[in-house]
């Protein structure tokens, strides 16, 4: 699976990347929304792991930008944030409309659980 991790903290990004590559995923990391758009443009990922707290342009702005391109409408996004979902936004459907499949509270999930979320969100195609 081709994964883009949008994570401003390089140490955390490195940990997530290590865990995911260990499970055979192809991982690229971006520390900003702008860099993530650039990486998506280079090669469309199967899934994006997104921290909402980014420097300059936040995760929601990134989602709006991403969904403004027809080709990128269906890329599944997993939000992985330090903010508890209920604190971030009262209306969860707002994020769902922007293509967020899961909202994970960072301190509450292990690397194993992040890997499992990826498998839930991007199921292999059945023939």
């Amino acid at each position: 699976m081709n994964v883009i991790i949008v994570e401003p903290d390089k140490r955390l990004a490195s940990n997530y990347a290590l865990a995911l590559t260990g499970h055979g995923h192809d991982v690229r990391t971006a520390t900003s929304a702008q860099q993530a758009i650039h990486l998506t443009d280079e090669q469309v990922p199967d899934v994006i792991l997104l921290e909402l707290h980014l420097k300059k342009h936040n995760g929601v702005e990134f989602l709006y930008e991403l969904r403004s391109y027809a080709d990128w409408q269906d890329i599944p996004v997993i939000v992985l944030s330090f903010v508890q979902p209920e604190k971030f936004i009262s209306d969860e459907s707002f994020l769902q409309q922007l293509g967020v499949k899961e909202f994970l509270y960072k301190p509450g999930v292990s690397l194993q659980q992040v890997t499992a979320a990826l498998s839930r969100v991007v199921r292999p195609l059945s023939i």
């Binding site: 140490r11 955390l12 290590l18 960072k106 301190p107 292990s110």
Partner: peptide, 22 residues
Amino acid sequence: AEHMKLPLLYMRQHAELVRGGE
């Protein structure tokens, strides 16, 4: 308290990665 989540998360993640053989 908000800040402390970050170093604690590093530590937990490192423990998990070390357990996985890294």
